[in-house]
Nucleic acid binder design. Structure first.
Lengths: 185, 185
DNA sequence: CTTGCCTATGCAACTCGTTGCATAGCAGGA
DNA sequence: TCCTGCTATGCAACGAGTTGCATAGGCAAG
């Protein structure tokens, strides 16, 4: 389980409340590790009980109080230990790929609009990544260690989206060809 | 949940026992939808109870009996219905990406051997994909619809591995540069 | 002949992750 | 005024997924 470690990294980069963490997961980190607010609150409570993080109640005006968490010593130590353990290979749950093979037993043309919608989503995400890259890393030569590591992860996201877009185009071409073959004879 | 649909597709392509399905998931399908034998047996029983698939006891000599499942009419209908529902975007759980950002709070050089091991795994998988492609799709011009769809999914796997290898090289270069900067001053 | 491995199925217990709902104050628009 | 929406946290219940173990026969190597 790496959710607790993902949260630790996020808190080390910037302390925050459960709610703020949930919003960060929706944006940057969430693309390679998803989590809902429920999971985050549960894990935060457990980590606080274990002494990995410390909490501070912060009163706000015009909105409810919040509990701001920071990574504590034991949390840092746990993260360092985890870094030295072997990495699990990443897991992908690619529902669309299952559907593409399933289309062989139905009408392949019925998938075209779905694939196109998917493609739009990836194109939008790529645009967002590239926008974030220009904003946060305008001068790649002048980055500290932390920023360089954040940047290389972001480049991975960019390349993933580019690869996926090209593949979806390949899928669409295949589906169109199959549809033409069907009506053609 | 798409596990039942992934199993249906696999059974439509070729009937088989729970054990055989588990081995198929370890190989081809498992790269974009993982499942253990426990999940598979549980889902098979549920699908049989729902009439989606039918089972046949097969006695074997020299080894235990097995139950061979085939997709039945209601299963085909359920698959066709699922195909028309909206696709969820694929989810990635990329532990290595979390670790790379975590390395900013520890020694980045400690990650190098891990990333290299990861790289070897992806290189081996790419080789296996390319080998399978030469074996199963030697003449792309002479494929029926089902094979064309299987092939385009395989091409997605190939492109994913190529992209990942290139990115891991990028990560390694970044880690080496950071390690050199550290010892350099 | 015993030990370990492979086929083949399954139970029990657990953790992870999701969904729906609840609370509670404040802000802004119809 | 009422309704919607945002911040902020949480409970309860469920479903998905993992881990450890059990059974049971046959095969091959030592």
């Amino acid at each position: 389980m790496a959710l607790e470690h993902a949260i630790l990294v996020s808190l080390l980069e910037q302390p925050g409340s459960g709610y703020e963490l949930a919003r960060r997961f929706d944006r940057s980190i969430g693309r390679f590790w998803t989590a809902t607010h429920q999971q985050i609150y549960r894990v935060l409570r457990r980590m606080e009980a274990d002494g990995w993080i410390s909490a501070e109640e912060v009163a706000q005006d015009g909105r409810p109080d919040k509990k701001v968490y920071s990574a504590a010593g034991p949390g840092r130590a746990a993260l360092a230990g985890w870094l030295r353990e072997p990495v699990e290979p990443e897991t992908v749950r690619h529902e669309l790929a299952v559907k593409i093979r399933a289309a062989a037993f139905d009408d392949p043309a019925a998938l075209i609009s779905e694939v196109e919608r998917h493609r739009e989503g990836h194109a939008a995400l790529l645009a967002r990544y590239l926008h974030g890259e220009r904003r946060d890393f305008p001068d790649p030569a002048a980055l500290d260690a932390r920023q360089q590591l954040q940047h290389v992860v972001l480049r991975g996201g960019v390349e993933y989206e580019r690869m996926t877009l090209a593949w979806l185009d390949d899928v669409l071409a295949t589906l169109h060809r199959l549809a033409a073959d069907r009506t053609g004879d």
